[in-house]
Amino acid sequence: MATEAQQSTTRRDFLFVATGAVAGVGAAATVWPLINQMNPDASTLAVASIEFSLNGIEEGQSVTILWRGLPVFVRNRTAKEIEEAKAVALADLKDPETDEQRTKEGHEQWLVMIANCTHLGCIPTGESGEFDGWFCPCHGSQFDTAGRIRKGPAPTNLVVPPYEFISDSLIQIG
């Protein structure tokens, strides 16, 4: 009698545990799509990576393009600007990065950066400030010709987005 009762208890417990476990799996599998729907949708992801042609941007000229809804500076730097950027000693920098780290090998004249100031997100004006680079009018951050923070409240350099050269005159951002 005793063993029978024990057996039936075990069976019963097993059934309850199994039902509870399956219910848990079902609940989790239901909840995930309800949360995941808030992630960027297919039409947003489709424009997460764009191609941009550099043709027609003369030396010393900047254009601002939109990538993932963010403004991006693409600047064809002059030889003087490149020289200035390379001449800076790393020790003088708040956020040390060499000019090479901020550009692509063989395409040093091209500087591609997200145009939002790393302080609070304003868009700096180009070819201005004490370092010939960018000056943020909101809170006075100053960037050099490689977009590195030199003076003012911004904590880091202007962000270089992931990009690569598909050919000499075509880049893919993102």
Binding site: P33, N36, Q37, N39, D41, A42
Partner: peptide, 9 residues
């Protein structure tokens, strides 16, 4: 078409 799992929801 585009929203994640949108067809089902």
């Amino acid at each position: 078409r585009d929203v994640n799992g949108g067809r089902m929801i």
